[in-house]
Design a protein around this nucleic acid. Structure first.
Length: 261
DNA sequence: ATGGTAGTGCAACTA
C-alpha cells in the first residue's frame, strides 16, 4: 500500500504536475493541501478519469484539503470539533479531512501557518494542535490503524530546517509550535520518514522566494506522514520526491511518500 | 535585517 502527501498550492494550477505524477506513481492514497478551490470548482472528473476518487472540502482562494484514493472512502468528515474554550472559533472544514477505508483511518490536515509569533493566528495555531489532540482522543486510541498526513507547518528539530539559529522566532520553528506538535505526536504517532532517515537533512518545502537548486537544497521539513503502531509496524519505505519542484510552474512543496506492506 | 515569488482573482491578502 502506497500513500503520499503533497501541498499542491492550488489543485487547478497543478493538474499538469499532479495527474502525470499520479499516473507514474499510482499511490493508493494521496493527501492534498491548499487545493484553493471551492467544492464546485474541484476537478473531481479529471481525477476520476485517472482512477482517483476524492473526499474534499475547499473554500474560495485559501486552504482546502482532499484525500484521493483508488477505492472510494467508506466515510469522510471535515473539520475539528467546536472549541469548548472558544465556541465562536471556526472548525476549519477546509483544513481537516478524516476518511475511513476499511479499518484504515486517514487524517489529512493543513495546520494554520500562524503568520507571526505575535499575531493572533499564532495563538490560534497553537490552540489548533491542542484541539486536534482532543479530536483524536475523542475518537481513537493508538491501537487504531491511523495515518495522519499533511502540511503541519512545523519543523520538528534543528535538522529539519536550514540555519536553525536564524529561525527561532519563525512560526514554523518557534519552540511553542514545536512543543504543540509534539503533544499531538505523543498520542502515539511515528514520524515514518525520520525513522528511516535518522540523520538526513532533507526538506518538503522550498520557498518560491529563493531560486531552487536541487544540489544545494535550502528548505523546511514541514510535511509529514505519521502512523500509529499497527500501521508503522508495516512500514517498508519512505521518500521525498523533489523532482516536481524543478518542473515548470511547480508547487513550493514536494510529495512525501511511504509504502507499507 | 530585508526582500525575494506565486496563488487567487483583479486589490490585497496569504504563504
Amino acid at each position: 500500500m502506497k500513500i503520499a502527501t503533497f501541498n499542491c498550492n492550488s489543485i487547478r494550477s497543478r493538474l499538469d504536475i499532479l495527474l502525470p505524477w499520479l499516473d507514474a506513481n499510482r499511490p493508493d492514497f494521496m493527501c492534498l493541501q491548499e487545493t484553493k478551490a471551492t467544492d464546485d470548482a474541484f476537478p473531481a472528473d479529471a481525477l476520476l478519469e485517472h482512477g482517483y476518487h476524492a473526499a474534499f472540502r475547499g473554500e474560495k482562494s485559501y486552504n482546502g484539503v482532499a484525500i484521493l484514493s483508488l477505492a472510494p472512502a467508506d466515510e469522510a468528515a471535515f473539520g475539528l470539533d467546536p472549541d469548548p474554550a472558544a465556541p465562536s472559533a471556526p472548525t476549519d472544514p477546509a483544513r481537516l479531512v478524516l476518511a475511513r477505508y476499511g479499518d484504515l483511518h486517514i487524517l489529512d490536515t493543513y495546520v494554520p501557518q500562524g503568520r507571526a509569533i505575535d499575531h493572533p493566528m499564532y495563538a490560534y495555531k497553537l490552540r489548533w494542535f491542542d484541539r486536534l489532540r482532543a479530536f483524536l482522543d475523542a475518537r481513537f486510541t493508538p491501537a487504531d490503524r491511523i495515518l495522519w498526513c499533511g502540511d503541519l507547518n512545523v519543523a520538528r528539530h534543528p535538522i529539519d530546517v536550514t540555519n536553525p539559529a536564524t529561525k527561532k522566532d519563525h512560526v514554523c520553528y518557534h519552540q511553542a509550535a514545536r512543543d504543540a506538535f509534539e503533544r499531538v505526536l505523543s498520542f502515539g504517532f511515528d514520524d515514518v520518514w525520520r525513522t528511516q532517515h535518522p540523520d538526513d537533512a532533507d526538506y518538503t518545502f522550498y520557498d518560491y522566494r529563493a531560486p531552487f537548486d536541487p544540489a544545494r537544497r535550502r528548505g523546511w521539513r514541514i510535511d509529514y506522514i505519521l502512523a500509529t503502531p499497527p500501521q508503522s509496524s508495516r512500514l517498508l519505505s519512505t521518500r521525498i520526491d523533489i523532482s516536481p519542484r524543478s518542473l515548470p510552474r511547480p508547487s513550493d512543496h514536494v510529495p512525501l511518500c511511504a509504502e507499507f506492506r
